[in-house]
Amino acid sequence: MHDTHERLLACIPRLRRYARALVGRREDADDLVQDTMERAWDRLASWQAGTDMRAWLFGIMHNLHVDRLRRQPPACDALDEDTLMNAAVNNPSAGLEMRDMETALMLLPVDQREVLLLVALENMRYEQVAEALHIPVGTVMSRLSRARARLHALLEGQPGAPALKVVK
């Protein structure tokens, strides 16, 4: 049991990294992590030893995040491709590409962003992503493919990337 607790605690940095990339603001991200941990402690008995704790945990976070989005109508920031271009024009610094990436990620629909981040940050296998998000592997692949194509289009300024409202 103690071992399980340690494993759970050891996952916090990963949860924080993913949450930061998923929701953007540090405070919002840590709120999401806190809620995730509370639910995880509560339901630790339902986690079956020997199964993938990480997929289980990220699944909890996913559910909570979806609940939040459902509860609070997404804040539609005035963030679109123009924002991206302005960011590029106004910040000719070394961190420019990173800024653009951060902005572009937020322009992705949240379901695509989740898949891309779990693959990129967590190096999850596609099957694990499917388990965490409760979707078929085929859906993981199509979301991943669309996420990358969209990100590419946004960052290269290609036409055909429709303006999106940020769903935070």
């Binding site: 605690l9 916090i12 940095p13 990963r14 924080r16 990294r17 993913y18 930061r20 990339a21 840590d30 992590v33 806190q34 941990m37 590409e97 990173m98 990436m101 951060e102 990620l105 891309l116 981040l117 693959v119 990129a120 940050l121 990358r148 990100l151 590419h152 960052l155």
Partner: peptide, 22 residues
């Protein structure tokens, strides 16, 4: 892009975890 995402967010892993989260 994948590398940039990692560069962007990997530092979070090394941030000290706030006590209330533990």
């Amino acid at each position: 892009h994948k590398q940039q995402i990692q560069t962007l967010f990997d530092p979070v892993i090394h941030e000290p975890v706030p006590e209330h989260l533990r």
